[in-house]
């Protein structure tokens, strides 16, 4: 009897919390995708301008698929490069002797964040030319701040008693960083990477302005041609991608929570 109650209680907990959180977003996204396909793509006439833009009706809108790949590639490359630079920078500004530079480094990252993305693209187009490289650079600059900031905050938030115990037991500062500080701050660091990646999904849509491809291509093609279907395909797919990236990384983040000693 008691077993049964437990079983039902457990089941209800799963139904309400876990199942909702795992299924609602993906199901919604599938519904939206089906609607887009039926309402927008299927109503486009074969051989029309839209059909050509989207990769022709006959071969299954190949360009939509290409644009999604390009978009993901922009995000993947720029966010990875940002992690490669921002994590060491974030660590550096928590080290003794470099703390004075934390204002400077965070300031640079802040500038990258506060200048409008379209302006960054315009400025660096002049320097780096058009195409993939420039877009990656702008996105990289954008992704720096959240990662630097969260890396530094994550490390600073590690319980000072844990650090003191580690020091007192004879760990070197390198061992403390690798074995204590980084593992304990990783969830916060990861939250910064998630923010950066999600911001970049939206910003990458502007990459099309400088010929970097991606889902923005349909939007900027649709505006002068006044073809709503093109604009909507680009906009809705970008939104779906942003929501899914956030959702998937969020699920990973939930798994990373470090058990706290004060529980």
């Amino acid at each position: 009897m008691k077993e049964d109650t437990n079983f039902w209680q457990r089941l209800r907990r799963i139904t309400i919390k876990d199942m909702m959180s795992w299924t609602v977003i993906p199901v919604l996204m599938i519904i939206v995708s089906v609607l887009v396909y039926n309402r927008l793509l299927l109503t486009i006439e074969p051989g029309s301008m839209e059909a050509n833009m989207l990769g022709s009706y006959e071969i299954g809108f190949k360009r939509v698929g290409d644009a999604i790949t390009e978009h993901l590639r922009l995000i993947l490359v720029s966010t990875s490069l940002a992690i490669a630079v921002a994590v060491p920078a974030g660590i550096l500004i928590t080290r003794q002797g470099f703390r004075d530079f934390s204002g400077l480094i965070l300031g640079v990252a802040n500038v990258g964040q506060s200048v409008p993305s379209i302006a960054i693209l315009a400025v660096f187009m002049g320097i780096l030319g058009i195409g993939f490289k420039t877009a990656v650079f702008a996105l990289w600059l954008y992704a720096l701040l959240p990662i630097v900031r969260n890396t530094a905050i994550g490390i600073e938030e590690v319980d000072p008693n844990v650090i003191e115990a580690a020091t007192g037991m004879g760990m070197t500062s390198r061992q403390i960083l690798l074995q204590i500080e980084l593992p304990l701050s990783f969830p916060v660091m990861f939250a910064g990477m998630r923010t950066a990646a999600v911001i970049n999904v939206g910003t990458a849509a502007l990459g099309a302005f400088i010929g970097a491809g991606g889902l923005g291509t349909f939007i900027i093609a649709g505006i002068p041609l006044m073809r709503d279907s093109l604009i909507l395909v680009g906009a809705i797919l970008t939104a779906i991608m942003a929501i899914l990236v956030d959702f998937i990384l969020g699920k990973i983040q939930d798994r990373l929570v470090v058990p706290t000693a004060s529980a």
Partner: peptide, 18 residues
């Protein structure tokens, strides 16, 4: 080396939570 040869126990324990 000195610290590794001396036992050290603090108030907040400082156990490594991970």
């Amino acid at each position: 080396q000195l610290r590794r040869s001396i036992g050290y126990i603090i108030q907040q324990i400082g156990l490594f939570p991970h």
